[in-house]
């Protein structure tokens, strides 16, 4: 049981897919200008990753070694397509909000990384927990970056103004640069810096 707990918790901290393994950076830059798409993206990746992990884990003993990456990709792409079709039919609003992110989920290297490194070698239950853990680890970083960018770039969180008008009257201005993709990289860099400074065991000798 403690093993499962560990499987779930390490991706949130010491083995975070974004901040420690530096995976999934592309989508982390693309969707973090605002908090809302970041949360939607984080949750979708979590769900897809958990499902894909379970499927691959069930198939792991039958998959021919030479085409295993192709099989993993097909499973992920199929799952993403089915989920997006179902959303279009039953939760149209959500599917509109997801629109372009669906494509980004398929190409997210966290998925391939977890399928290859974990699900191919572990049972379904462990894989499910690992998928959820890694998905949430990814989501947490997205939310932190998005919150910083939206707060300083637009003065809002979830589109609601947070920085009071009196500050603007006193000469405060939103930092437009925050909304540009390069700032996401800079913030991400700072998070990685913090993680490594605080946990010396992460530093290479």
């Amino acid at each position: 049981m403690s093993n499962l707990k560990e499987t779930f918790l390490t991706p949130l901290g010491l083995n975070n897919p974004v901040a420690v393994q530096v995976l999934g950076i592309c989508s982390a830059l693309a969707v973090t200008a605002q908090l809302e798409p970041a949360i939607v993206m984080g949750l979708s990746v979590t769900i897809i990753l958990a499902l894909a992990n379970v499927v691959i884990s069930l198939l792991r003993n039958t998959i021919p070694n030479r085409i295993r990456i192709i099989v993993q990709l097909v499973v992920v792409a199929t799952l993403v397509t089915i989920v997006s079709e179902v959303l279009k039919a039953f939760a149209y609003e959500v599917s509109v909000a997801l629109s372009v992110y669906v494509g980004l989920i398929i190409t997210n290297c966290i998925l391939m990384g977890r399928l290859e490194a974990f699900a191919m070698a572990n049972g379904p239950l462990d894989s499910l927990i690992d998928g959820i853990g890694n998905g949430l680890g990814y989501a947490i970083i997205l939310v932190i970056v998005a919150a910083i960018r939206e707060l300083f770039g637009a003065g809002c969180l979830f589109g609601i103004q947070i920085i009071p008008d009196c500050l603007y009257e006193a000469g405060y201005m939103n930092c437009g640069l925050m909304l540009m993709p390069p700032m996401a990289l800079v913030i991400l860099g700072c998070i990685i810096w913090y993680m490594r400074a605080k946990n010396p065991e992460l530093q290479e000798k």
């Binding site: 003993n61 039958t62 998959i63 021919p64 070694n65 030479r66 085409i67 192709i70 099989v71």
Partner: peptide
């Protein structure tokens, strides 16, 4: 699971 025929059949 590594033979050619198995791989092709699986795919």
């Amino acid at each position: 699971t590594n033979s050619n025929s198995y791989t092709i059949g699986y795919a």
